[in-house]
Design a protein around this nucleic acid. Sequence first.
DNA 1: ATACAATTAAAACAGATGTTTGAATATAAG
DNA 2: CTTATATTCAAACATCTGTTTTAATTGTAT
Lengths: 217, 217
Amino acid sequence: MNKRKSLIRTDTKHSIMDAAEYMFARNGYKGTSLRAITGRAGVNLAAVNYHFGSKKVLLEAVLLRRIQPLNLERRRRFEEIRDNARKLRKKPEAELILKAFIEPVFYFGESDPGSKDFITLIGRAIVDPDDTVRKVFHKFMRSIFELLFKMMSEALPGLSRDVIFWRLHFTIGAMAHAMRICSPDMKELAHSGTATDTSAVIEHLIRFVSKGMKARR
Amino acid sequence: MNKRKSLIRTDTKHSIMDAAEYMFARNGYKGTSLRAITGRAGVNLAAVNYHFGSKKVLLEAVLLRRIQPLNLERRRRFEEIRDNARKLRKKPEAELILKAFIEPVFYFGESDPGSKDFITLIGRAIVDPDDTVRKVFHKFMRSIFELLFKMMSEALPGLSRDVIFWRLHFTIGAMAHAMRICSPDMKELAHSGTATDTSAVIEHLIRFVSKGMKARR
DNA sequence: ATACAATTAAAACAGATGTTTGAATATAAG
DNA sequence: CTTATATTCAAACATCTGTTTTAATTGTAT
């Protein structure tokens, strides 16, 4: 049967991607060897180059698998906000836009257990010192950032382009940092007794950035 | 003479540290080889292990050289704020505390030309996927963060420990991200025509985080 | 069953990595 | 100058890296 064949094929591919996501998130791109990935996945070393072609393409696949549905959800929520605003003949609300941008990242990480690593991975990809990682990531993120920028300009027409640009980047920085702290092996950072419950963090974060975003001047 | 000897010794040591700082900032810890460092420094490969013992110790030295005076300056400003507040029998102001924490990083980078790299380096060390980097960095930062936490708790007694903790981390995340964008080879990120002037960024940043910090609840 | 393609497996590849070694050189003191 | 110490240097070390190769195995149709 055709089903059987393709199932087996995608099984190894998926194992590799899962293992890679896990390892990349914890040790970074440079810090993860193909042997560590294939070892964890329980497949042969050569399988990576057979199925993906190279380590770099594997990384792209790992990132894209999560970022694509993530940004789709963000777009959906952006349009929802725009539609509602038009109906009410109002400007879209900054806080809603930020929620639409931030919440999906964390909730995607909660739904699929495997994608807990992906929160860390994304949080790090944003700033990875390795050119490969950063360029791949920015390639996937540029368009959604520009949409975010546009929406926010509509929501806060009193602010200059520069101010919006920088505040959005502060937002992303704060978000990425929160994502990393929320990662499994970073709880070390938290003070003893500090709540690291995800949904609470999201609320704190959104409150924080929307206040900063809406500051006068 | 003793002077001559120690001058020569520290000369190679300094060259190595400068080169290492430059390379670590651009390519990360894992992404930088000792050969790249010694090549740039114009010294022999073995010099690193002779003078520092290992790549890891070199990293610690590079970080410590900048972080020590940086945190000294932060402490000085913290105490200044405390003294002034006591004189006026008022609580210390959150915005001043944030300025005391944030400004020195950027200004240190502007004074010494070589330490422009260090802004990037610090910005990345905060989140480097490599355990070595992150643990070394946190070791040096823990005490100053706790002081920051204490000061902020005095400034904003209405907020819970959790809220202050998280908001300070959002602040650090935003700051680190800003530091990375300000780095030489990351301007790619900025929209065309966006001002990347350092002092302007600092002002935007402080405005942003102090608004977020002081949000009710 | 046979032939064909897709996948897996083990081994080897060339190159880069941090570190060590032992000889050569420079510097200081006696 | 001579000796002792500190530093530099080139070379080699063992190990790890991503990738390629070649053979064996598997699955799927004819």
